[in-house]
Design a protein around this nucleic acid. Sequence first.
DNA 1: CAGTGGTCTAGACCACAAA
DNA 2: TTGTGGTCTAGACCACTGT
Lengths: 247, 247
Amino acid sequence: MQTRPWIQIAEDLRLRITSGEYAEGERLPSGSTLMGEYGVARQTIQNAVDQLRAEGLVSSIAGRGWFVSKRRPITRLARNRLSADERTAGRGAFLTDAAAADFTPTVTVRVWKEEAGEEVASYLDVPSGTQVLVRDRVMRADGDVVQLAASYLPADLVQGTQVEHVDTGPGGTYARLEEAGFALSHFTEFVSARSPRPAEAESLRIPHGHPVIQVTRVAFAADRPVEVNFISMASDRFQLVYQIDAR
Amino acid sequence: MQTRPWIQIAEDLRLRITSGEYAEGERLPSGSTLMGEYGVARQTIQNAVDQLRAEGLVSSIAGRGWFVSKRRPITRLARNRLSADERTAGRGAFLTDAAAADFTPTVTVRVWKEEAGEEVASYLDVPSGTQVLVRDRVMRADGDVVQLAASYLPADLVQGTQVEHVDTGPGGTYARLEEAGFALSHFTEFVSARSPRPAEAESLRIPHGHPVIQVTRVAFAADRPVEVNFISMASDRFQLVYQIDAR
DNA sequence: CAGTGGTCTAGACCACAAA
DNA sequence: TTGTGGTCTAGACCACTGT
């Protein structure tokens, strides 16, 4: 085999975990022990365990040891809940999710204006440099940061509306947009995943090596894009659910 | 600051890249040079660069150096393309995507039967241990592996149909299901992300540290689940696109 | 050949947890 | 105090690249 030692050790440990040799919540042998068992240096064991942590099989507590991860309940976020019913019920998308998943939501908002960068401009179908309103939000569930979101709207479109304020009122931004004459026709969501920056990982409490789910949502009013929203969330706690009609 | 050196170095290098000090495709200073610049050991530089590679900012070529990544074109996969039109047009979902994204698709299929595990059973709403047909597929684009997929169907449901064969015929599995009297009503897709196992990363040609997009698609016929499909793909080359009506 | 990235080792130090 | 995970260092070796 040409595979590196840390990969083989990770594979062996993974097998020992999935075979049930170490049960959920149980502690793995200590680093020193594993160094002896496999006859390798400390860092090599660390690399192997890092891999298993990234896969979500193992979590670590400094000073205590490595433990087989318990299957955490995953919050499923229904993305088709952006319908008019929910909007007029006076709740934004995040609050709707919170109600469904049964956690206490908190949202911290910062609002400012800036010139649209290339990416934002392309999503909003406006020239680069156009003034946009930015709504930067930190969403917490029971106090823990779980989602980061940044919305961009053409500034002239929301001039003088409640959208320019931190508190957008009942129904949130989408309700205000509709009042302003922009009846929403549909949303397009682009879903991807990426590795977070260290600072981002820390604020979202993402275990080392775990990816972030990245949703870019564009809201359309009569086929004109009126908002683009960049949403990041931890992939070990959230799952997106889409329903597609077979027609 | 209490942040570790490799994080600070990664942040500094990221700034130097995004500010344009190093352009797309340009080579970063060598490891030895950076060791001198920052006054740290080889491994510390390596950790910093590993972070930037995971973020997709940097790619490396052994023996040559580290290079600022070029923005690769991302293939957008429209998920609402599972409609009857497309199915009866004689193409499976992957072939439809291929046509849209303009690459030459190849699919390698292995078929067998086994007893449903807990997860599969729960998605199919059958007792654990029920016989299921497994269709394990490797999808290639222009020769490169880009998607791994494993479908599970209740065995009694597809008994004696073309679904049990490697080649399911025009329209694929879904078309055969409809012929067998299971008219598809809707699909539910669960989207998440995770870190791949090393073997998986290698076969999907995923750069170290890059996540995998994981789609679990359940096909329903009159509200009865008839197929669950676990799909993995590289997150640096694919993006899922969902369209949601505002109603 | 010399230079590059990637990995492994041996040893050290730190913060933290449990006894 | 002892043992734990996590990180950094200095040095070594390998595979690979371009000359």
